[in-house]
Amino acid sequence: MPEILFYVFAGTAVGGAVGVVLQRNPVGSLLFMVGTLASIAGIFVLLEAQFLAAIQLMVYAGAIMVLFLFVIMLLNLGHDYRADLKRGLGAFLAFAVTGALGGLLVGQLGGVGENPLYEYLPGPGELDRVFAADGIVGAIARPLFTDYVVPFELVGILLLVALIGAVALAKKGG
């Protein structure tokens, strides 16, 4: 059952991602992207990372994509996208970079053991132990607010700085 569900979610995620690129209508692209993000949330649930799934839906599908929707609505209604398509060298570079990244990904599929992050993965039973001790939310919350509290707060301040910067830039123009 989980295997079948994984292939369903993986299929809709990849299909949605292709749809984002192929759609001519920006709103259509956006909806496909929401579909992709929701499918990834489904995969998170299959991995027992239910908290991540909820956050994925709430933050990405529910908040960031709504912001995208606003931008599309307010700036780009009926805009012809063809002028934005890059030709010549730009197209060549785009394909080259995509191909190189795809190649790296396929290369990684074969050798899991060589993954530099592999030693940081939890051992067998480790996840169950953490879930039993702290619950699914606590498994993320406890390290975040104890071991990693300084980086966490720094990221928070970074976002605040970006926010204030955006407001300052907007004020300057108007």
Binding site: V27, L31, V34, Q50, F51, A54, G62, V66, I136, V137
Partner: peptide, 25 residues
């Protein structure tokens, strides 16, 4: 009885906006 409880409600209610927005658009 999901272990994420109230977060599930927030996650899905935040998707409700697409229906209204798309209807209008």
């Amino acid at each position: 009885d999901l272990p994420i409880g109230i977060l599930y409600v927030l996650a899905f209610s935040s998707l409700g906006v697409y229906g209204l927005f798309l209807a209008g658009w």
